[in-house]
Design a protein around this nucleic acid. Sequence first.
RNA 1: GGUCCCGUAGUUUAAUGGAUAAAACGAGCGUUUCCUAAACGCUUGAUCCCAGUUCGAUUCUGGGCGGGACUACCA
Length: 610
Amino acid sequence: MNEQTNAKSLRKFALMHLNPITQEVKQAISTVLASEFAWNGESDSLVINQTKPEFEGDLTLVLFGLAKSLGKSPDQIGQSLGAALIGRFTGLFSGFQVVKGFLNLSIQDSKWAEGFNLQCKALNTVPCVGQSERIMVEYSSPNTNKPLHLGHLRNIFLGWSIAAILKKTGNQLVKSCVVNDRGIHICKSMIAWQRFGNGDTPTSTGMKGDHFVGHYYVRFNDAYKKEVDELISTGLTKEKAEQKAPIMKATQQMLLDWEKGDPEILSLWRTMNEWVYDGFDQTYNRIGADFQKTYYESETYLLGKKFVEEGLASGVFFRKPDGSVWIDLTEDGLDEKLVLRKDGTSVYITQDLGLAQQKFDEFNYDQSIYVIADEQNYHMKVLRLILKKLGKSYADGIHHLSYGMVELPSGRMKSREGTVVDADDITEEMVTVARTKTEELGKVKDFSADELKELYETLALGALKFYLLRVDPKKKMVFNPEESIDFQGFTGPFIQYTHARIRSILRKVGATSDEFSINEPVHPKEKEIMVLLGQYAEQVHQAASEHNPAVVANYAYHLAKTFNGFYAELSVMQAESEEKKALRVQLCNRTAIILKDAMALLGIRVPERM
RNA sequence: GGUCCCGUAGUUUAAUGGAUAAAACGAGCGUUUCCUAAACGCUUGAUCCCAGUUCGAUUCUGGGCGGGACUACCA
């Protein structure tokens, strides 16, 4: 709740400073209300929306709230308020209409032009608002036993993008990654490689390292399943068989040896992990993921233990007779939660407590954002709560950017059933689509092989990233491999195409000055773009406060869509007058800049031609 | 059982408590002597159900129904 109100007030704050026209209108209204209606409310309490396209006007004041506090009918207030505004602020308003409790105000064209002019001269596309914070974003967080899949991509794109957005709004960012490099899962791959590997390596087989290791993880499961089936056929129950399968026993033994520090096992473990990292790096490079700090669980899994002592001493934790340590969260509507096993080893949550502290010690963060799937909601709640109970100041700065799973039409992706959509495969498929489509259209036949390759990457990743980012993170999404990802409509390439078209115009126009004047009436299509461009900054701030890149994606699409409407109806090169031409060139220029800027926040590049 | 999330056109998504719920895909029709037709325009079609709060509810509250996640001495 606290978080929400905070986000709301932040948004209001941002809006106030970032949209001068709305602000000016609010001021004007409250001035008139105060002097002529003896109104004493806050100007921020006025509700002003963009006027719906079917009505005349630009901004709309909702009158119902005022009607109540002033004791007059909405229509009465609307009429006299409108008349007074027009009379006193001739430079601002050009007309008004009262419709069913709404006061629709028309803003002078010159006002929009003035705002647009200011914007063109501004140094930053998105001015900073409020205080700069130190923010950590943890994302990706893979296991080292298999390659990345579509779910990881959503995670990575979200994490990268929200970091970019927060940076844009004036914060200092550290991106981090936690690698889950220890535990039974990696031992499974190791055992399988020992048994079936014949000394093969990624180099000798020409396989990408993470796929190579993942292959042995699959081999393990196959072998395991076979052993279990055999044991079941000798009359054992499934459960017993699963326990008794020799390959599983060997794996468990290997984990024990690993923990004891057996040099041979450790060496194999290092080697295989290196293979995986090498594969991950290739993928990260291609999709543009980067981290300033990487934590390995093998190095951090013991960190939380001191918390256990601390918690016991302060009475936040308690010890059960068997020696295990717990925290009672029943008062907070949760359960009792184990923080230390009876054998004295730590569990997942213990590690996370330790890591949170370590990160704070190293970076002294104001906010620490964890990009993790929503199946971990409970875990993250517990983490935050425990830190709070332990009196850690940084607990309030911990945020869970919780996102829904990516599912297939058949349901959840299951690696054991081979239904995962592999990250590298899907990227490659998108490249193929980009190539096919580009060749079909044949617009860039003069491109060199390198330029083509770059274009295909740009389009493929643009489509993929936009597809995964345009949806509200907290919603789960269904990915249909059959229908695959589109290049038309509400997509990355749509926006990229719009950008390329604008750049084409600007190339033809050649050098331009950023001066323009408006004496002729502004065309609705021109105004639409001006209005929209003026909203960019507040949209980015909204995305930042909500931790939601989809806001930026929707905005960019909306802007591109609007521009395309303008493009289809009005000519830039053949404008009716020099004045119009100068204005339209500026609209093109500015739209291109903002589209590029917005897409960059999503990690998407925009081409000059396509 | 308990806790949490979700339910909007055939499908995928929008909508600080505001007006006649907005797009895209799909389907159908149309637009290129003029800046890139990966575009533009038109047609088609939706808030799971029942109450409540409100001048006003997709949005807030309660209750149903449906889907999902979590509730491990796994990580």
